[in-house]
Design a protein around this nucleic acid. Structure first.
Lengths: 159, 159
DNA sequence: TATTGTTATACTCTATAACTATA
DNA sequence: TATAGTTATAGAGTATAACAATA
């Protein structure tokens, strides 16, 4: 029920900080999911709309790289979004093997709605922080990100 | 491809901050998952071990409340952990309907290993932040958490 | 009657492998 | 030969509903 070694005060502070970071991640994810459910979307499907809205029409191959999932997985996600009328499949103009995925009018609307919600959420989440605090917060995150990306690139060379 | 309204500089800063927060969440989750896969665990199953290690033996009912999932879901997770020998089911001493889930010796070892990894990760993630920076970082997160918890409790009353 | 955990069923996300059509 | 996307199959997580044993 208790670690054998004696954690230093700074270890404790870091443990508490990591715990908070996880709780924050959970709360953010929950609040995002809630918005998605109301639109009849799942996280994975919303990701597809998000990329298409930001990057424009793409082949499924490109989507699978964007989403870091298998082509088979993309097939299923596009199937689902096509069924509810948010995307369409179009033949690729020059490569007859490939399929272009594009947003329908409804898909564009959904994508814009998500963008607006995102901006609203950003205002909301950081509403209690002043400009200085926000700046310091971002600086701290950037340092953490730099370190984590470094660690990832050392171990992820199995990709 | 571009929002219609003109976001203010602070909106931009907040959007960037939120984006970083998501990236951080993804990197943290990935790095945690990596450790789990090496132990033959999934996130959901590791959650079970984590709670049992922290809170001690529990009924499946209690687990389902801890994990915020259905009792049926707990059945599956406990089945899987029992199959690989990390937990055991024991009759509840006084309530013959209930089942106590306890860690086996291997389960205790796995749980301790996760705890150690967690502490190591915490040291690692915040290694580049000084004590002051860490303190400010935690203060900022706490304010965000306070706000998010408030929002959640306003809308989550459907639970 | 209410509660605990199960069986039955279903949906989503994800993956690998084999295959077709095309490059 | 290599690539794009599909079918086939499988496993994990999650959910609801119906049910048995017990409280």
């Amino acid at each position: 029920m208790k670690s054998l070694h004696n954690p230093s005060p700074s270890d404790l502070a870091r443990g508490g900080a990591l715990e908070r970071l996880f709780e924050l991640a959970v709360l953010l994810a929950d609040s995002m999911d809630q918005g998605l459910v109301e639109r009849g979307l799942t996280r994975a499907r919303a990701e597809v709309l998000w990329r298409l809205g930001r990057l424009g029409p793409m082949t499924q191959r490109a989507l699978s790289e964007e989403l870091r999932c298998t082509p088979r997985n993309v097939t299923g996600l596009v199937d689902a979004l096509e069924r509810i009328g948010l995307v369409e499949r179009r033949p690729h103009p020059t490569d007859r093997r490939a399929t272009l995925v594009i947003l329908t009018d409804n898909g564009v609307a959904a994508s814009r709605g998500m963008q607006a919600e995102y901006e609203h959420a950003a205002r909301d989440v950081f509403a209690d922080l002043g400009a200085d605090e926000l700046e310091e917060f971002v600086a701290a995150i950037d340092r953490i990100l730099g370190r984590l990306r470094g660690v990832a690139s050392m171990t992820d060379r199995a990709s």
